[in-house]
């Protein structure tokens, strides 16, 4: 089978990888780029474990052809922490015990970050609707929602402090 060579930007770095014409972006990330933080739960768009950011919008990478990524910007869970420093959403997931098996966690964190990047002060119901495409079979969701709301509060506080320092 003839493979396609795809050039894209992943977590800010230019990358090139091979894919079958029908291969998914999820498989390319995991098997070609060895970025295995992004998980496959269902492969049909239902669970959100494979959530990545494609040109600024969150999508299920299982429902994107890898070939579609040509020239595009992709952000994955591997790019959420800055070096060794966890993102506040990641820390709050630990603080609130918002994970058990952890399989759904990368998808939830990428999705939650996408929400907080555009809405720093979401209501609980906004968080629940935004995360409706992410399934968790362990936690019962409450702890996840609390972790996201708490991370939002901390990020708002951080921004206030940064604003005051800048002023």
């Amino acid at each position: 089978m003839n493979k396609l060579v795809i050039a894209a930007t992943v977590n800010g770095d230019p990358v090139e990888f091979l894919t079958d014409p029908g291969g998914s972006l999820l498989d390319a990330l995991r098997e070609e780029l060895l970025l295995t933080g992004t998980k496959e739960g269902c492969g049909s768009g239902d669970c959100g474990a494979c959530t990545v950011i494609l040109d600024g919008e969150m999508v299920c990478s299982c429902l994107v052809f890898a070939a579609e990524a040509q020239g595009r910007q992709i952000a994955t869970i591997e790019g959420v922490a800055e070096g060794g420093r966890l993102h506040p959403i990641q820390r709050k997931f630990l603080d609130h015990a918002a994970l058990q098996c952890g399989f759904c966690t990368p998808g939830f964190i990428v999705a939650a970050r996408s929400l907080l990047d555009r809405n720093p002060d979401p209501s609980e119901s906004e968080v629940r609707y935004w995360l409706a495409g992410n399934l968790c079979r362990c936690t019962g969701y409450d702890k996840i929602v609390r972790a996201v709301l708490d991370a939002a509060a901390e990020l708002r506080q951080e921004r206030r402090v940064e604003g005051e320092l800048a002023a």
């Binding site: 768009g45 959100g48 959530t51 494609l54 999508v59 994107v64 999705a111 409706a132 495409g133």
Partner: peptide, 9 residues
């Protein structure tokens, strides 16, 4: 339709 992830596509 679907979730935010689905509607973004």
């Amino acid at each position: 339709i679907g979730s935010v992830q689905v509607r973004n596509r």
